[in-house]
Write a protein that binds this DNA or RNA. Structure first.
Lengths: 219, 219
DNA sequence: CTCAACAAAATTGTCAACAATTTTGATTAT
DNA sequence: ATAATCAAAATTGTTGACAATTTTGTTGAG
């Protein structure tokens, strides 16, 4: 299906995906200088391609460029992470509403299964898996909503703030209240109640937001 | 201050701004094919610059590119315009909350003056100026909020959907109710009541959204 | 006349060399 | 030792030519 050119050269889209992933998963550190020729070699793409990809990543907010001074992985400040989380809250509230409007029985069953997984993780204090299931639940809601515009923006916002997500998870302190909040969301969606779903999501992310806000920027 | 190269060649940022403006203000029509060499001549920029700019505009959602088939001005469908408006509603509700939290007395005075302008426009049935003041009010709220992340996203969303704005304005039918809704927003901000400001903005944009939804896609 | 095949033209993607600018490192004066 | 100066190196921006692909237009068969 994917028309991979037999030559080792990466197409622009592949190069974009790889570089983006390297930034998001932390292979490339914030503030790290991205030298074009290094990327040409490590990515096996032409320099023109690399330049184009860097411009796209700048537009996406993952990279900063300065004329004649090259590109760097963008450093997201604590204050900005809070802003991003606030916007996410607004968008995910919309998503929850749409999910409640369009949920099939299979969708609801899937949500409840993820929630049950989260409960088990919380029981055995497995925060890593809990957090992964948390993300899974949110992704499932996004898929259910079918709101393409909100989905695209959320994807970008998440990629910018992944570095701050583990903090809120670790610092959340009371995973039992997090679990309760997620149950409220799933119940509202299961009841096909858009208003309740939106409200529950808003309450949940307001708490996450408050948690992140209370973490000292210095740490 | 701005280091304008004495040569006639446009820098990437200038080229980006000019091309973006041409798309947003309708000089370049939706679906219009953007041939690189033509842009090189009309923009007086190098081809590499033009290519980079097109990639940025694609990331921003104003342009579509296909390998070996070039770039086109992206066509925003009616359904997508509704989605964009819904996301705008969510973000502007957040903006209204922030504006209410950070409003100075001068800010409130400015808002009330714009509102008064809108009233006068509505009185003499000047829909064009009314719509311009409408936009001015929203921009003022955005500036007051000081929420950089929401501001950036709103700017992008607005640029994508300008083509659909005149429709909602013309079709709104009852400018008097629009004026009332805006007054609610300004009053809430003047009272420094974030919850009320957010709610008022939500109600207002829900009505705009409903109006746009009811316009037949065919027209 | 319609359709398929094919060549010509137009357009986009890639590459290598060069120009412009910044960064680095050594040198010298204080 | 420290700071200023300047050349060398590194890096980015630009240009033009060429390769790959699509688009267009023509020709011929049915």
């Amino acid at each position: 299906m994917s028309t991979m050119p037999q030559t080792g050269l990466l197409t622009e889209e592949e190069c974009y995906q790889r570089l983006r992933k390297a930034i998001v998963d932390g292979t490339l550190m914030p503030n790290q200088h991205l030298v074009e020729m290094d990327l040409v070699k490590s990515m096996n793409a032409s320099r023109a391609t690399v330049r184009t990809v860097l411009a796209r990543l700048e537009q996406e907010g993952l990279v900063e460029r300065e004329r004649y001074r090259g590109a760097r992985v963008r450093m997201v400040t604590h204050a900005e992470a809070v802003e991003i989380l606030e916007v996410r809250a607004a968008l995910e509230a919309l998503i929850a509403r749409y999910a409640a409007m369009h949920a099939t029985d299979a969708d609801v069953a899937a949500l409840q299964e993820i929630l049950e997984d989260m409960r088990r993780c919380q029981e055995r204090n497995d925060l890593i898996s809990y957090s992964e299931n948390n993300a899974r639940l949110h992704r499932k809601l996004v898929a259910m909503a079918g709101h393409h515009t909100a989905e695209r923006l959320l994807d970008t916002l998440n990629s910018q703030s992944v570095r701050y997500q583990y903090r809120t998870i670790m610092a959340q302190g009371r995973p039992e209240s997090s679990l309760r909040e997620h149950r409220e969301i799933v119940d509202a969606v299961a009841a096909r109640n858009p208003d309740a779903a939106e409200a529950a999501m808003k309450i949940h992310l307001a708490h996450v937001c408050e948690t992140l806000r209370q973490i000292k920027p210095g740490v």
